[in-house]
């Protein structure tokens, strides 16, 4: 009887260690799933970018005087200096590396909300098709945020401003 008990104990301990190994593998897999995922901040980043552009274009009920003349016409030179006028810098500072951002601002007159009368855009246009992709897992695509508001222009005109901000940075966040 005693010998049988001893054998039973050994079998039990083998099973016990098998259970421990299964638990360990499970814990390692769960931890890796949890901590292995990148800390994705792109949506917040894209929102901040859209807010910053919105504040640059229209702040406190007044449009940027560098964007619109007192008569209410758009200044073409704003397009060329969009980033510097809005204190933005998309330059990654590395050779052969494209910017990880794209911003597009469309101004639609309230008389025709289908046709944009002025467009501002800067950054890496290659990210834009990612916004149209209809897939469940968007983690490996750029993050897109849209923001829109109405703006009173100096000449009495009203514009619907649509801002599209995109942040790439897939490798850093996935």
């Amino acid at each position: 009887m005693k010998l049988q008990n001893k054998r039973g104990d050994k079998i039990l301990s083998v099973y016990w260690f098998a259970i421990l190994v299964i638990v360990a593998v499970g814990v390692v897999l769960m931890v890796n799933t949890f901590y292995g995922k990148g800390y994705d901040v792109r949506e917040v980043e894209a929102r901040i970018l859209a807010e910053k552009v919105a504040d640059c274009v229209y702040f406190g009920g007044e449009s940027n005087s560098l964007l619109l003349t007192p008569q209410g016409t758009f200044r073409e030179d704003f397009k060329d200096n969009f980033l510097s006028f809005c204190t933005l810098n998309f330059d990654p500072g590395k050779e052969f590396v494209r910017p990880e951002y794209y911003v597009e601002v469309n101004f639609f007159p309230d008389t025709n909300l289908r046709r944009s009368s002025f467009v501002l855009s800067e950054g890496n246009l290659n990210w834009k098709p990612d916004c149209e992709e209809k897939v469940a897992d968007r983690s490996k695509l750029a993050t897109c945020v849209e923001k829109e508001f109405f703006m009173n222009a100096p000449g009495g005109a009203v514009y619907l401003v649509k801002i599209l901000s995109i942040v790439g940075k897939v490798q850093e966040n996935v």
Binding site: V23, V27, V31, Y35, G38, V44, L49, K52
Partner: peptide, 29 residues
């Protein structure tokens, strides 16, 4: 097992990544 969990949760790589992103967002805003 416990050491592995602690190392994963408080590792330098994880903290470096999260702090660099959060401070970059602070700078952006």
């Amino acid at each position: 097992l416990v050491l592995f969990l602690l190392k994963q949760a408080g590792g330098a790589v994880l903290i470096e990544g999260s702090y660099s992103k959060e401070i970059a967002l602070l700078v952006d805003s």
